[in-house]
Design a protein around this nucleic acid. Structure first.
Length: 295
DNA sequence: GAGCTATGTAGAC
DNA sequence: TCTACCTAGCTCT
């Protein structure tokens, strides 16, 4: 779930639900008991995200949360039920409660700790104070491949595996192109696109990278077999069988290994890069002649 | 219900 | 480079 848009949305939700009032804090799991005691009955002054990091100012404490791969922190209407499973931190008010589960980080870091974390991060496309040119200069000044740089949080904060794959496809950039080989104009276009896509992700609460004009064509590509092959598929489009068949991920290339590229029809490729799965179209995103390597 | 996988990162080696 | 973190949605049986 959590790329940068998730954290920005979460910050806004926490601010809206708990902001300006004292909160009750507890650690039903016990692993954050001392921290929760320091937060308890403090007022949430501000919740904000930098990249994939979330910071809450509660009283004189600064809470730092990173959800990692599978952390969650949904806000639900009170009354809070008895905690189920490993709830690292529960925030509660008369109207709302929020159970934090499975985070990579949940610590009290203070202002200095927050500054140190933020200083490690590159510009975040979702923050109005972000410096696009810092991102462009960093990529242009490197021989690292752009597919790796987009996942490097010190280069650009908040982008994860889905936005990486999709934005590179949208701009027909090979993930294996060296940063210095990508033009500044293209990198500015990538940044501007990420701003739009990620803002949209904050609004919707999910990642949508396929242009409306392409949605139907892509969904058609991702139906496993034509409906005529199977009498069970008769009926409306929302039949269970149809939904099971429709494998569309809502992405151009992410999660579509082996399926046809919408633009050229060739199979979308997948490779492991730094322990993460990388998806791209080997034809639409082929590197420029001068830098081409066999892949 | 079991098993697999994932939008991530830090620390050990 | 490998592993821990230890959730939740999906697929398979």
């Amino acid at each position: 779930m959590p790329e940068g848009h998730t954290l920005h949305r979460m910050a806004a939700t926490l601010q809206r639900s708990f902001g300006g009032r004292p909160v009750r804090a507890s650690s039903p799991q016990g692993r954050f008991e001392s921290g929760a005691r320091l937060l308890d009955r403090g007022t949430l002054d501000r919740a904000e995200a930098f990249g994939k990091h979330l910071f809450l100012d509660v009283g004189d404490q600064v809470l730092h949360v990173h959800l990692g791969l599978y952390g969650t922190w949904p806000v639900s209407p009170a009354p809070a039920p008895l905690p189920v499973g490993a709830v690292r931190l529960r925030l509660a008010s008369e109207q709302w409660y929020a159970d934090l589960r499975g985070p990579t980080a949940c610590d009290l870091v203070g202002d200095d700790g927050r500054d140190a974390i933020v200083a490690r991060l590159g510009p975040d496309p979702l923050r109005p104070d972000a410096d696009r040119e810092r991102f462009v200069a960093r990529v242009r000044g490197s021989r690292s491949i752009v597919g790796a740089m987009l996942m490097d949080q010190s280069v650009i904060a908040g982008v994860g595996n889905i936005y990486r794959a999709e934005v590179l496809f949208r701009h027909r950039i090979s993930p294996y192109a060296e940063g210095r080989a990508v033009s500044a104009a293209k990198l500015r276009a990538v940044w501007d696109d990420l701003v739009v896509l990620m803002q949209d992700g904050v609004r919707r609460g999910r990642i949508v990278t396929v242009d409306p004009a392409d949605v139907d064509a892509l969904a058609a590509l991702d139906v496993d077999r034509p409906a005529s092959d199977d009498p069970d598929l008769d009926g409306d489009d929302d039949s269970l069988a149809m939904r099971r068949r429709r494998r569309s991920t809502g992405a151009y290339v992410y999660g579509r290994a082996g399926r046809p590229c919408l633009r050229c029809g060739r199979a979308v490729r997948m490779a492991e890069l730094q322990g993460r799965r990388l998806y791209w179209c080997g034809y639409c995103q082929r590197p420029p002649r001068s830098t081409r390597v066999s892949r």
